[in-house]
Design a binder for these strands. Structure first.
Length: 210
DNA sequence: AAGCGCAGCAACCGCCTCTTG
DNA sequence: CCAAGAGGCGGTTGCTGCGCT
């Protein structure tokens, strides 16, 4: 009841500087979290999700904006091949970049590049279907199977196989200079990804499976 | 100069997972 | 164990600015 009321009353659209200011002030004093109560406590007529998103994607300190570097671009492409549209996981490897950022960057820049490459190499994969239209250029998006989404840490045999073949592929396409694994101290530790990069380095599969 | 189309990006939506009582 | 609420994530939309005709 009340939730629905708040929902319909919630302000939408672009954030104004004064709204940003209120949100920043609130988080400075109370810290992140309790997004549901942020609107009440700040007077912002925004939903909790909206506040959280604004903070996470725009207001948070150490957010890196602007052009992606070549290294970042390469990493995104590699990670996307590996993980599919797991933007948050990919973002975890790129300090200062948000999942939304990467998603947008992929959809606008990299998807074109990759689909071009794919057309070149004539790798046909007709099983990918889209739910809704994607702008004029109809960039291809790959989605992970629901099963894989559910099991973050457990890697399927299929996944492993794909990973192995991907490694061979990557080895042949990437130049040595771009092939350096990236590690960031301030990023969350993701064992299976680190294993992957390690494994990339030594050119040998590492057994993750039990 | 005006109109149109496209690219880029911020923000929203809906679903799923996690947490808590 | 279950239900409800909060948080997180990926897909999608819509606005804005820019370039082209």
């Amino acid at each position: 009841m009340e939730r629905r009321e708040v929902k319909t009353m919630a302000k939408k659209g672009l954030w104004k500087p004064e709204e940003d200011f209120l949100l920043i002030k609130y988080i400075e004093t109370h810290g992140e979290g309790n997004w549901a109560t942020v609107s009440q406590k700040t007077g912002l007529k925004r939903g909790g999700k909206s506040c959280r998103l604004r903070w996470k994607n725009y207001l948070r300190p150490n957010i890196k904006r602007g052009m992606m570097s070549k290294e970042e671009e390469d990493l995104i492409i590699r990670m996307h091949k590996l993980l599919g549209n797991r933007w948050s996981l990919i973002a975890g490897r790129l300090p200062g970049r948000t999942d939304n950022d990467i998603k947008n960057y992929w959809n606008t820049h990299l998807n074109k590049i990759c689909s071009k490459e794919k057309t070149k190499s004539k790798v046909s994969n007709n099983s990918v279907t889209k739910k809704k239209k994607i702008r004029s250029t109809s960039p291809e998006t790959t989605t992970c199977p629901p099963d894989e989404r559910k099991e973050e840490g457990t890697l399927t045999n299929t996944w492993l196989e794909e990973t192995n073949s991907f490694t061979q592929e990557t080895k042949s396409t990437l130049s040595p200079s771009t092939y350096t694994p990236l590690f960031y101290e301030d990023e969350p530790f993701m064992p299976f990804l680190d294993s992957y990069f390690f494994f990339e380095d030594i050119m040998r599969p590492v057994m993750w499976m039990p």
